[in-house]
Design a protein around this nucleic acid. Structure first.
Lengths: 248, 248
DNA sequence: GTCGCGGCATAACCTAGGTTAAGTTAGTCG
DNA sequence: CGACTAACTTAACCTAGGTTATGCCGCGAC
């Protein structure tokens, strides 16, 4: 089965990202490509791909669209604990644990590749570099999670929202989704509130404040940051935890 | 070099914990034991073992005492993002990334085993079960980090502190550090405040409130929970994210 | 002994952010 | 076209939690 050009361009960001985390052998690259194209899936916006308590038996790699990991309390309070962007994988190795401790939902329509556990294991067993790239991804994920902890625990509302915008920018950039000073922001203010631990009303107030101070323009689902350094300063943002040096 | 009984009892909780995460082969157990006893170290309270930005070239396994992972903002605001308890390891595989994204400090005097990267890699290369146990630990860690996110973002002060106490209890239990309804609580209220994202004053108020309602007794560095179910209910605590089923 | 200090406790006051409510806009479904 | 809904906005009000300050206790240094 020959690969079409359009299919290749779909999975290319994933290969590029993995390769930046750990240089992949040509064979690893090819077999990962095939595995992904074998399991292409689509989902609409606001769908749960997997829920807390579900057993895991496959790995999903996001090709386009935004997803989030979230947890809820009994009474409905919801916290988005992380976003998942194109080029990132969802549950790499998660099947080492019996069930999910959190849920994963789409925030936009999404294209992803689903790789079954057995195939995934033969992929990673066959090539050390791929396995290491995936583990690096898990470690970076862990670092992001820690940054979210200090974000939620110690930053003010303004710093928090600014920090989230900075992080989104820096995570979208290596997969080619930042265009100059702009990127898409295809999520509702409700989602942003759940990600920053704020109420929707206060999230809106904070966005207005960022707008008024000229730090951001957010209109038509597009975020523009004219002076990134100023936004970073307002956010107390330092990108080292994202391990971006790997993407030159 | 024969192992003394006292040395064995020191590393026993680690072996037991790893074995619960993944059943270890007899050889894995023995070589891990030797590697740990080879690198025994001590540290006093309130010492940084490693700081944000430092390169990592060894793995530390905690044998006794409490540590924490923390991050700070430029202006000194500090967030403890996780605790590290006896039987847990610090930086397993962290050397896959170039530098630490956070710091690790002792909260009490600590005994730990330091295993150099090369030796660690030969240990895990030699035995798949040990490697898997350590990766499981990383995944559980990640799950704990997510729970901390919802704790900081969505729980009230009372729920947060109660939740932290519940988690500490459940993490200390499998390594034999819970005695009936009590465990040691060798940290200052300042530390608890930094872990829950509260000010010291409000942490103190909250502890008073938990005391007044009869949910906890905290005295002489000892925490007693007479009615664990009541505390769990107040905390909206559900232990599944800790993967404790593994420890019977 | 007492000086100094770190940890705990409590009170008075204040503010960041939550809550409730209402209005606007824009898109979708008949 | 109008009805309905989801997302956003703004205002008024309120409270959880922060800040500042003061006092107490216990302990180690001298």
């Amino acid at each position: 089965m020959p690969l079409s050009t359009s299919d290749r361009s779909l999975v290319e960001p994933v290969i590029r990202r993995m390769n930046a985390l750990r240089p992949l052998s040509a064979e690893a690259r090819a077999s990962l490509e095939y595995a992904m194209l074998d399991g292409l899936q689509r989902a609409g916006a606001s769908e749960d791909l997997i829920s807390e308590g579900d057993p895991v038996d496959s790995v999903r790699v996001v090709l386009s669209g935004w997803l989030c990991r979230y947890k809820t309390l009994e009474d409905g309070r919801r916290q988005i604990v992380n976003f998942i962007f194109p080029g990132e994988s969802c549950d790499s190795h998660a099947f080492l644990l019996p069930v999910m401790d959190h849920s994963i939902a789409t925030m936009t329509p999404v294209v992803y590749a689903e790789i079954k556990r057995a195939r995934f294991e033969s992929l990673t067993r066959g090539d050390r570099s791929l396995a290491e790239a995936l583990w690096c991804e898990t470690l970076v994920n862990n670092a992001v999670q820690r940054e979210w902890a200090i974000n939620l625990g110690r930053r003010t509302a303004l710093e928090r929202v600014a920090h989230l915008f900075c992080e989104i920018f820096e995570r979208l950039r290596p997969v080619g989704l930042v265009d100059g000073n702009s990127c898409v922001m295809p999520v509702t203010q409700m989602d942003l509130a759940d990600a920053t631990g704020l109420s929707v009303v206060h999230l809106n107030r904070t966005v207005q404040e960022l707008r008024a101070s000229g730090l951001i323009v957010l209109r038509d689902r597009t975020l523009t940051v004219n002076d990134p350094d100023a936004l970073k300063a307002a956010a107390l943002f330092s990108p080292s935890y994202l391990q971006l040096y790997r993407f030159s």
